[in-house]
Structure formats: structure tokens, C-alpha cells
Amino acid sequence: MLKYLERNIVFGMTRRGQRGPVPIYRQIMASIKADVAAGVLKPGQALPKEDDLAKQHDASRLTVRKALALLREERVIYTQHPKGSYVGPEGAPQIRDPWPFESVAAQVTELIRGGEYEPDTVLPSENEMMETYGVAKNTVRAAMALLREQGWVYTVPAMGTFVEKRDKWNKEDLSS
């Protein structure tokens, strides 16, 4: 029996020190389950990113991935690639912080709705948007792609991105 306990304690060790007889991935699982039970994590809520969980638990990403895989098997969480992992059940509406490009798109939408940008007027350049919102070029491009998809703007190559006519705006967004 003593050899069994010693072996498990060794398996529970990391480079930074001893953790005890419970493997780290099991500790991560228990922590997430406790947060779900306590209501800290609600159904549909996004879990922290793997890197953040690894730092929080002083573990490797591989260990975090093992914990998340087992939580998926137990149906405590579900994963939607590339969006991330969410608290189950899988049908629950997703609750997460907006991505930076979604925040930029939402702010531009509000400016359009508020009349700051009229239909057929050109929006600021990528560089101006980068400076205004403090984001990278790819974030601005993703925001513009989302706005095009939602019907708020259109792009004319070599001329810029313009505000769409009101009848093309996303009707669902107008009712909110």
C-alpha cells in the first residue's frame, strides 16, 4: 500500500514542487466542476482559454487539454472549434465576452445607427481604425468582414469601405 501511495505522489509532482496524490488534471477537473456547481460558471458560459487555465493551475497545456477532454466525455462541457469550450449542455445559448473584432464592429454599427456615418459615406481607413480602436490590422479587417456580412457596409476595391443604404442593414439589429 505504501508503494502505491508513493507512486501516486510521484506522479502528482511537477517541476515546481509536490502537488499531492491527486493528478493535476483531476484537480483541474474538480475545480471546473466546483465552479459549475457553485454557479460561478453557468450553462453556455465560455471557459477560460487553455493558456489561462494552465497558468491558473500551474500546469501544462497538455494537462489542461486532458482535463477538458475528460470533462467533455462527462458532458460537463462542450467544445465548438474554433470558438472554444463552453459549460454544457451543448444546446445552451453561449455566453462569452466579445472578440476584439466583434467589439470594433459593434462600435462602428452604433456610429452608423447614430448617424455619424451616413449611407454611401466612406469609413475611416484601416490605419485610422487601428489607431482609433487600438487593435491590429487583422482585427479591423475581421470587423469589416463582419459588418459586410451583416449588411452594414460594402467595400469598393482601391476606394474604401462605405456605409450601405438603410434598406440593406440587418433588420434584426435595428429592432434592438
Rank of each mutant, 00 (worst) to 15 (best):
L5D: 00
E6L: 09
R7A: 13
I9G: 02
R26Y: 04
Q27G: 08
K33G: 05
A34V: 02
A37Q: 12
A37C: 10
A38V: 09
G39Y: 12
G39K: 12
G39P: 01
L41G: 12
G44Q: 13
K49S: 06
E50F: 04
E50T: 15
D52G: 07
L53I: 14
L53W: 04
K55H: 12
H57R: 11
A59R: 05
A59E: 01
A59Y: 06
V64S: 00
K66A: 09
A69T: 14
E73Y: 13
E74T: 04
Y78G: 10
A92W: 09
A92S: 15
P93D: 09
D97C: 00
S103I: 11
V108F: 01
T109E: 15
L111Q: 15
L111D: 13
V122T: 12
L123P: 07
P124I: 04
S125W: 04
N127Y: 13
N127M: 15
E128N: 15
M129G: 06
Y133L: 05
A136P: 02
K137S: 02
T139A: 00
R141T: 09
L147Y: 06
E149G: 09
T155A: 12
V156H: 02
P157M: 02
P157W: 01
A158M: 09
A158D: 13
M159R: 15
G160R: 09
V163M: 01
D167N: 15
N170R: 09
D173H: 14
S175I: 15
